[in-house]
Design a protein around this nucleic acid. Structure first.
Length: 258
DNA sequence: ATGGTAGTAGAACTA
């Protein structure tokens, strides 16, 4: 089973990137964040032509998540509570056979002093509660998406200069590790232990050429998924190209013997 | 360099 994640920064603008990538890499499931489209306007047709099914929860302009899969997903839910209007465009999950796929777009937080950062921390606590309520850690579960957390110093290009950022600080790391202690392991890092591997590069400042990136997109798995994982990688090619226009994030992908 | 770029909007906002 091949599972991938991609923050599209508008799924409609990114169709020329996503559709060829699906054809080339044939993931069983692609989790997308920042679709930036309300459900009535989601571009299901182009994915159907490639044989992919879509479930999604979005809104105008901001946020929005989707799961794009070869086979239809079962037991699809979004938000912390079914169809919750506030949280749904950031959380959608479903089941593919015995494997649960949880796709999240964790709030970025804007700045440390804002209520948005406090909301980010609360969002992670609510997510933790959802895990405890809905799942057990002995299940086959993948948690992936744009988590807006760089867990370790090696996950940012300048750990000294960026320390304290809303996506890279000790308080956030502690909370993130507490959520992961429920039962999630870093599948990407397990297979790629070396520094310098990033999934996000700011549009501003030729960051991709200098490898000035962040690893804030993640593929995590319960112990049972980690032991079944075979490989994981980041595909930088779509971010490097000028055309078709890239997202500021790129694809992370993992293979599992399931 | 409190800048820079991109997307959604159709002026600011979010990232």
């Amino acid at each position: 089973m091949r599972i991938a994640t991609f923050n599209a920064n508008s799924i409609r603008m990114r169709l020329p990137v996503i559709l060829p990538w699906l054809t080339e890499h044939s993931p069983d499931v692609l989790a997308v964040q920042e679709t930036k489209v309300q459900d009535s306007d989601f571009p299901v047709g182009p994915f159907a032509e490639l044989g992919y099914h879509c479930v999604f929860k979005g809104q105008k302009s901001y946020n929005g998540v989707a799961l794009i899969s070869r086979e239809p997903l079962a037991d699809v839910r979004s938000g912390f509570n079914w169809d919750d209007a506030v949280h749904s465009p950031r959380l959608i999950w479903g089941r593919m056979g015995s494997v649960w796929i949880i796709n999240t777009y964790v709030p970025q937080g804007r700045d440390r002093e804002s209520e948005h950062y406090a909301g980010k921390l609360q969002w992670l606590r609510d997510f933790h509660s959802m895990l405890q309520r809905e799942f057990t850690s002995d299940q086959l579960i993948v948690w992936l998406g744009d988590l807006n957390v760089a867990p370790e110093s090696m996950d940012v290009y300048d750990p000294k200069g960026l320390d304290g950022h809303v996506c890279f600080n000790a308080e956030l790391t502690e909370l993130f590790n507490a959520v992961c202690a429920w039962g999630f392991h870093d599948v990407f890092r397990h297979h790629r232990p070396n520094p310098g591997e990033f999934s996000y590069f700011d549009y501003r400042g030729a960051t991709i050429q200098r490898n000035h990136g962040w690893r804030i997109d993640h593929i995590l798995g319960t112990r049972a998924m980690l032991t079944r994982s075979q490989d994981a990688w980041i595909d930088l090619e779509p971010r490097k190209r000028a055309e078709p226009k890239p997202s500021d994030h790129t694809f992370m992908c993992a293979d599992f013997d399931v």
